[in-house]
Design a protein around this nucleic acid. Structure first.
Lengths: 205, 205
DNA sequence: GGTGTGACTATATTCTAAATTAGTCACTTG
DNA sequence: CAAGTGACTAATTTAGAATATAGTCACACC
């Protein structure tokens, strides 16, 4: 929920305004159904009963609208991960579920909402703020899990925290990043378990 | 060097024939200079002074010629890796150099021979035999390194060998696979070292 | 049987003119 | 001053005709 977490292509005009919400809602439906490229800004305008020009009172560009939608999509993945992590008893288990949830929600998006997935992949490919924020959030959650594991004595403490987190993040990257995930669908069945095992072995004290 | 390692789209006609070699040589130059798509089969025919039809006495298709070139490219990477591994004193060091060499030769190809890189990436994307064979070879070398490490007592022996190798292979995948490597250029500087550290920690007895 | 080709077709690619689209701006209305 | 738009332009996309290409085949020469 909440707001667009990014800063730069944020938008224009009043941040809370019923029309802005209408635009985002219409965009969510259209992008999901017809895809980002195939929906025109005029389509969105027509859908909410205003002129195209009015849309630009609220968003800098079509991409900014795409960002808003992408942000929502990626935020929902982060939320699923947060729930999974919160529900796990130990840091070890938190890590396992984190990885598993990340992959399964990503894959679910790919197969059930391909059009939205494509926007997310595009976003990741272009380095849009929404994608950066997403990666940042995942990294923070991971850092917290590793930190807790160290405190609990489940994980080793010699390697600098940042270094460990960075390396584990690199391992997960092909399944975190929507742009990459689509090329790794073959491994989606076993990768979370196999790689979790490997990472946890490397985290062992 | 040697032969095309694949089986299916192998070719036609005599396997050792000066004209076949001429075709491969011309293809190597043309593909490298103008790219796979921009070179026509007629171009190759003209380059070696024969008719286009004659080329098809030696190769099933243009793709088969692409395969031959791709095979050579990927084989040269494998050879570089083999040399690096052979030159390392310990299995631990073998692994480090293997990963490092894999990335540096891949990146080198990307920046110095982009056109050939693109063929390799395409090959990996389409699952051409040349790419499969390449992945297979890398996996074999990795298996041997891990096996030696276990024998030498440097690596743990509890986890099944295949499982360990598979997981490590997955970790390296984004840097092994030319299709994926191009999306991971940002991490190319630190990934080999960071991931080698992580993997070696996980391999520790 | 081995070496080699011109002429052919179906498919893919390129080119270009016409149509859409993103984005702006001066303007109206209440 | 906030809400809202029609008309405009530059850039992009589309459509579909013209061109080029992959691949085949029947045949010629030695």
């Amino acid at each position: 929920m909440s707001e667009i977490a990014s800063s730069s292509p944020h938008s224009r005009g009043p941040v809370d305004h019923s029309v802005r919400e209408q635009i985002v809602e219409a965009a969510g439906e259209h992008f999901s159904q017809y895809g980002y490229e195939k929906t025109t800004v005029s389509d969105l305008a027509k859908a909410i009963g205003f002129s195209k020009a009015y849309i630009y009172k609220f968003f800098d560009s079509k991409q900014a609208i795409g960002e808003a939608i992408c942000s929502k999509t990626l935020t929902s993945i982060v939320e699923a991960v947060e729930v999974a992590v919160a529900g796990a008893p130990t840091p070890t288990e938190k890590f396992r579920r984190m990885f598993k949830t990340l992959v399964s929600t990503g894959v679910g998006l790919f197969f059930n909402d391909r059009k939205l997935y494509d926007i997310a992949a595009h976003s990741a490919g272009e380095g849009w703020p929404s994608a950066r924020t997403y990666a940042q959030r995942i990294r923070e959650i991971l850092t917290e899990v590793v930190r807790q594991g160290r405190e609990a004595g489940e994980f080793e403490r010699k390697t600098p925290l940042d270094e460990t987190v960075h390396a584990v993040f690199l391992v997960m990257q092909p399944y975190i990043n929507p742009l990459l995930l689509q090329y790794n669908l073959d491994h989606v069945e076993d990768a979370p378990v196999q790689l979790s095992n490997l990472v946890l072995r490397s985290l062992a004290p």
